[in-house]
Computed example of a mutant assay.
Amino acid sequence: ANIVFSSSAGVYGTPDVARVTESTATTPESPYGESKLIGEWMLWNERRRAELEGGSFTPVSLRYFNVIGSATGRIRDTSPHNVVPKVLEGLSAGRTPTIFGDDYATPDGTNVRDYVHVQDVALAHVAAAERLENGQPIESVYNLGSGAGSSTREIIEAILKATDSDQAPEVGPRRPGDPASIVADGTLAARDLDWQMRYSIDEMIASAVSAAGERD
């Protein structure tokens, strides 16, 4: 038996390295990140149990960084907790976008995150599943990240531009458990899962705006 597990960059908490690799320490600081790490532990334990009983169980954990955008069909980011859908829904309701903290040790003071397109994430799942099915060598964990970061302010301003909004974001207090910056090294995924950035940030956001318009 094999499984591809949807994990998260949240397992890393606040890393003390400029670029996170799969060997970076896992120290989650949010309940969400902790739940994903527990899920990984359960899979590793099941793999060990299968080995002891002479069987086989191969789990692969894909640690997503910040998934945004929309592709064809149902492949789209619709989580009300994620920044792009949240800002778009707020703008539709006439609310001002909020930046949670602008005093981080980052270029513009707002959180820096590694944004990836939802379709690229979906394609990585297919590649991992095919690799498992074909019995090819595969790592236990892969980071799905771009290797570059964009700040919260940059993302919100890009959304405002894409929606022709003249709103200006307001600044609120920091949220507990939010690291200043987290950016991934996706070298292993690029090697094994054809992982690559097929879209720019502006294209990712444009796809999300277009999908939101279709739903409206």
Rank of each mutant, 00 (worst) to 15 (best):
V87T: 12
S61P: 00
G54M: 07
A71N: 03
D102E: 12
V121N: 08
T106A: 02
D77C: 15
I138A: 06
V84K: 01
T98W: 06
E130P: 01
G54C: 06
R47N: 03
H81M: 15
I75S: 12
S56A: 15
L132K: 03
H125D: 00
S140Y: 13
T110M: 05
T78R: 06
A124T: 02
V116T: 07
T110L: 09
E89C: 13
G69W: 12
S70E: 00
V87F: 07
G90I: 08
D103N: 12
R76A: 15
F65G: 00
L132R: 03
Y64W: 11
R48F: 09
R48G: 05
I99W: 04
G55W: 11
P107F: 10
P80L: 08
P59K: 11
G94D: 02
E130S: 12
V112P: 01
P137H: 05
R48M: 12
V126M: 00
T58M: 13
P85W: 08
L88Y: 03
Y104H: 11
G94P: 01
S56I: 06
N66A: 10
G135C: 03
T96I: 15
V118H: 11
A129N: 06
N82L: 15
S61F: 04
G54K: 07
S70I: 00
Y115T: 05
S61Q: 04
P85S: 08
S56F: 14
H117V: 05
E51R: 14
R113Q: 13
E51N: 13
I99N: 02
R95S: 14
R74S: 13
T106D: 03
Q119K: 14
P80V: 07
K86T: 14
E133C: 10
E46K: 10
I99F: 04
E53R: 11
F100Q: 05
G69K: 08
V112F: 04
G69T: 07
G135K: 02
D103C: 05
H125L: 00
V84W: 02
I138G: 04
R63M: 11
T110W: 10
H125F: 00
G69L: 09
A128Q: 01
R49G: 01
D77R: 13
A128M: 03
L52R: 14
V84F: 02
P107W: 09
E53P: 02
I138V: 11
G101R: 09
G135Q: 05
L123N: 12
K86H: 14
Y115C: 11
D77Q: 15
T110F: 06
L132S: 02
L91D: 02
P80R: 11
G94K: 01
G135L: 05
P97R: 08
T98S: 09
G109V: 03
V118G: 12
S56W: 10
R131E: 01
E89W: 14
V67N: 02
A105M: 03
D108P: 13
G101D: 08
R63I: 09
T96D: 12
V83P: 07
G55R: 09
D102I: 06
R113G: 09
H117C: 05
I68Q: 07
